[in-house]
């Protein structure tokens, strides 16, 4: 596939529940979805106690350096130091206190430390690229990290992922759950990325882009980006 026409390739019949503002299960331009996305729609149910409960997440032993990815090794990692901070709320705008937030990312050269990443960009001995933290009582969180690089992947000829940070958020019930990716403003790769473009709603896609926010800068040291996340029952229709 040498070029991607998302309007042409998007088949609304393969969409998930109508009006959910979530991506379809199968999005042809993202090749891996073709055999992995369920073809049947999600079955709507009234859930039970299991879905509304969750443990006090204790499986990570989170320390003070787990939300600062620039101080996890002897030296300082290469690349541009950034702050990523924001607030976790539900779809009614209420803060979700003490959510467990995990992130992982490539280094500034666009290389993951993961053993399956074969991109021949250099690893950085001073950067792992994984962090975790709990939101505070008002839903606020903050990470210090390095701006990740873009990297090529095998989806189609000369395919590049725009720079992004993976996020996992565990809220107050098992189903208050989000797996997503955060992107950076003004990235020309966004509009040709089948993963970013898989979401058919431009407003939803826009909210995956962090905003540069000078209030979060550390002057002469790091640039600040704001990234808020809204957790709903997945698939809540837009009112």
């Amino acid at each position: 596939m040498s070029s991607l026409d998302f309007d042409r390739d998007f088949d609304p019949r393969l969409n998930g529940p109508v009006e959910t503002h979530q991506p379809p299960q199968v999005f042809d331009p993202y090749v891996s979805t073709r055999l992995r996305g369920p073809r049947n729609g999600l079955i709507p149910i009234h859930s039970g106690l299991t879905e509304r409960t969750a443990p006090v997440y204790g499986f990570h032993n989170i320390g003070g350096e787990d939300n600062d990815l620039t101080v996890q090794h002897e030296g300082t990692p290469l690349g541009q130091k950034i702050i990523v901070a924001g607030r976790i709320r539900d779809t009614h705008g209420q803060p979700i206190p003490h959510a467990l937030i995990e992130l992982w990312q490539a280094n500034s050269a666009g290389r993951y430390i993961h053993k399956r990443d074969q991109h021949p960009a250099p690893l950085d001995p001073n950067f792992t690229g994984a962090g975790r933290t709990f939101a505070d009582a008002h839903g606020y969180y903050s990470f210090t990290t390095i701006r990740p690089g873009a990297y090529p992947w095998g989806n189609h000829y000369n395919a590049w992922r725009p720079a992004h940070i993976h996020f996992s958020v565990l809220g107050q019930g098992f189903r208050q759950r989000l797996i997503t990716q955060m992107y950076f403003p003004d990235d020309p790769l966004l509009e040709i990325d089948p993963i970013y473009m898989a979401n058919p709603d431009r407003r939803v896609r826009d909210l995956l882009i962090a905003r540069y926010d000078r209030r979060f800068d550390i002057p002469d040291n790091a640039l600040g980006f704001r990234f808020d996340m809204f957790l709903g029952p997945n698939g809540t229709p837009l009112e």
Binding site: H21, T91, G93, D117, I179, V204, L207, F230
Partner: peptide
């Protein structure tokens, strides 16, 4: 937050994205 709310409809849930192939070292 009020200023924020005028820019961002709070009822729009954050879009889900794939976990990708490299989640192991993060999760």
């Amino acid at each position: 937050e009020q200023e924020e709310a005028t820019r961002q409809p709070a009822w729009l849930p954050t879009g889900t994205q794939t976990v990708g192939p490299y989640f192991h070292f993060g999760m």
